[in-house]
Structures are given as C-alpha cells and as structure tokens.
C-alpha cells in the first residue's frame, strides 16, 4: 500500500508486536468493565488501557515515524504525559463521589467514615 511498504522488517516487527499487545491489553481492561461485579472493582479496569495501552501504542507510532520520516513526532510524548497525569485524577474523583453517594444512601458495602456519621466531604478533597 502506501508509506508502510517502506518500513524495513526490523522496525515492522516491533511495531506490530507493540500495536497488538497494546490493543490487547486495552481490550482486557475494557472487558474488566463488563466482567467485574462491583463498581469499586470496575474502577481498576480502565487504568490498564490508560497506562499500558497508551504507552505501547504511542511507542509503536513513534518507532514508525522515526524510521519512516526520520523525525520524532513529539505529539505522542505529549499524549503519554497527559494521559498518565490525568487518568488517576479522574478515577480518584470518581471513586470519591461514588463513596459519598453510597454513604448518603446508607449502603452497607462501604466502610463508614472514621469520625462520626456526618457525610461531609469537605475535609477530604484531595
């Protein structure tokens, strides 16, 4: 086909392996969204795609373009940095709000707050 025919074998093989591995790990993480039973269990699932999947796929495209066009496409580095920095923040806030909602509803599956019963989260806003 197009530009990919110019890719030498020694670069094509790691690119293929990285792409397939990254997407397989992402798929495994997303399957966790379906398979795990509780919300707090499912909270762990997207981290797989965010950490391993993003790094592997970005590495694959960096190798491709470093070999093909002899220039480093920097956007992959930025994508890795953004995703690594932002995903924990999202999941943390989501876990906190789920905990808050479960406590307000008086669910027995979540641990009580250590100090008293008031569901005030203003002290825990990290």
């Amino acid at each position: 086909m197009n530009h990919l025919t110019d890719l030498p074998v020694w670069a094509a093989i790691p690119v293929c392996i990285l792409l397939l591995l990254g997407s397989a790990i992402t798929l495994a993480g997303s399957m966790g969204l379906i398979r795990l039973k509780t919300f707090y269990g499912r909270l762990h699932a997207p981290t797989l795609g965010a950490s391993a999947g993003t790094i592997l796929i970005c590495l694959a495209s960096m190798i491709t373009f470093a070999v093909l066009q002899n220039r480093w496409i920097i956007h992959e580095v930025l994508i890795i940095v953004f995703v690594i920095l932002t995903t924990p923040v999202t999941l943390m806030l989501l876990g906190q709000s789920a905990l808050y909602r479960d406590r307000i509803e008086g669910s027995n599956d979540v641990p009580r707050k250590a100090t008293g019963e008031d569901a005030d989260t203003s002290a825990a806003d990290i």
Binding site: V15, L19, G22, S23, T26, G29, S30, L33, F39, R42, L43, A45, P46, G49, A50, G53, T54, I57, C58, A60, S61, T64, E76, I79, V83, T87, T90, L91, L94, S97, A98, R101
Partner: peptide, 23 residues
C-alpha cells in the same frame, strides 16, 4: 458512576483508535 466510568474508558479507547489510524 458506572456510566461515567464507561464514558471515560470510551474516551481513552477512541483516542488509541485514532492513534492507530494515524500510524
């Protein structure tokens, strides 16, 4: 919260799909 978690995972997967299109 489950729906938001799904939306977040959907975003990340769509981003990775765009990266493979870019390759």
């Amino acid at each position: 919260q489950d729906r938001i978690l799904g939306l977040d995972a959907l975003y990340i997967n769509a981003m990775l799909l765009l990266l493979t299109f870019g390759v």
